[in-house]
């Protein structure tokens, strides 16, 4: 229902706000369906980061809109075609939650039953994602990494080089915001790390942790300005780290190969199968977390800086 009214709201800004609500709502549903991990991701990504990134994009595109020609018909037809395809796709899908659905009959019972004895980790989702589906998750991390490279290639290198004359940051004068954020940023970071390392026991994991960590940096950047943030977190280091995250993941796989197992089979990492799985999962989650956090930070900083530049140019 939210999605429907989303489509009809003309005001772009309002629709961004409604997207926020939409993801909050869907997160509520996920919690209801007991898919806590999904809800976690939805909460962190949908409600927070994507809203901010969309707004950032909005401010960017808002500037260009006047000059650009619009092709609403083409866009509309693309949307309609995609929509029809999606609907056709869902027709084939089994009824929601039906026990005869393929996902429920084949893999799910196996994962749930085996997870306890193979890996000995309370949170099934983590064990499934990081262990049984290690390849898939690795693929996702690579996708995130590639996205960052894409964004950087598009924005960073096309940027007009000029002296960094930053405008005064409006929010720094905002006493209350400044102080409250200063108090809150360290606990948020710590909480991100807590989510990171407790992925095995409670909902969450590398991905969510990365997003939360990035959002604390984004909060800082919003208050103290983009340039200062770029200096403080030192962008080159962040770039290296984001590659490092992928590397960590990959090298765990190689390490397990060296120890005589197959790629990403962590059981061989230690003498005991279960310990091996534990080590493997912790390290891999770390890789995911680092990549996601740095990816978000980089994307945000690059986008936001771009806005600053275009503001100067049009002014």
């Amino acid at each position: 229902m939210t999605a429907l009214s989303l489509a009809f709201t003309k005001d772009l800004f309002a629709s961004v706000m409604l997207t926020g609500i939409y993801s909050l709502l869907s997160a509520g549903f996920f919690v209801l369906m007991d898919a806590v991990d999904v809800a976690f991701t939805e909460a962190a990504v949908g409600a927070g980061i994507s809203t901010i990134l969309m707004l950032t994009t909005l401010t960017m595109t808002g500037r260009f809109e006047n000059r650009k020609l619009h092709h609403p018909k083409i866009a509309l037809s693309v949307v309609i075609v995609t929509g029809i395809m999606l609907v056709m796709g869902t027709v084939d899908m089994p009824a929601f939650g039906s026990p005869s659905a393929p996902a429920q009959t084949h893999v799910a019972p196996y994962y749930i039953q085996q997870s306890a004895q193979d890996i000995d980790i309370p949170n099934i989702v983590t064990s499934v994602l990081a262990s049984y589906r290690g390849f898939d998750t690795f693929g996702e991390v690579v996708v995130v990494f590639t996205a960052v490279i894409g964004v950087l290639a598009l924005l960073e290198f096309a940027r007009v080089e000029r002296a960094d004359s930053e405008k005064p940051v409006p929010m720094l004068q905002h006493k209350i915001l400044r102080i409250v954020s200063k108090i809150l940023i360290p606990p948020i970071m710590l909480f991100a790390l807590y989510v990171q390392f407790h992925g095995e026991y409670s909902p969450g994991g590398g991905f969510q942790a990365g997003v939360i960590f990035a959002s604390s940096i984004i909060l800082y950047a919003m208050l103290f300005g983009i340039e200062q943030t770029r200096k403080a977190v030192s962008v080159p280091v962040v770039k290296v780290l984001s590659a490092l995250g992928v590397l960590i993941y990959g090298s765990v796989g190689i390490a397990s190969m060296l120890n005589g197992g197959t790629y990403l089979n962590y059981s061989v990492l230690a003498e005991n199968d279960v310990t091996g799985q534990h080590i493997g999962i912790i390290v891999i989650e770390l890789g995911v977390g680092i990549t996601v956090a740095t990816a978000m930070i980089l994307i945000f900083l690059t986008f936001a800086r771009r806005i600053g530049k275009t503001e100067e140019e049009t002014a």
Binding site: I185, P186, M189, A232, V233
Partner: peptide, 12 residues
């Protein structure tokens, strides 16, 4: 990180 971000003072 807090040190790098320079938010370690009497305000935080």
């Amino acid at each position: 990180m807090a040190f790098r971000l320079n938010i370690l003072d009497e305000e935080s």
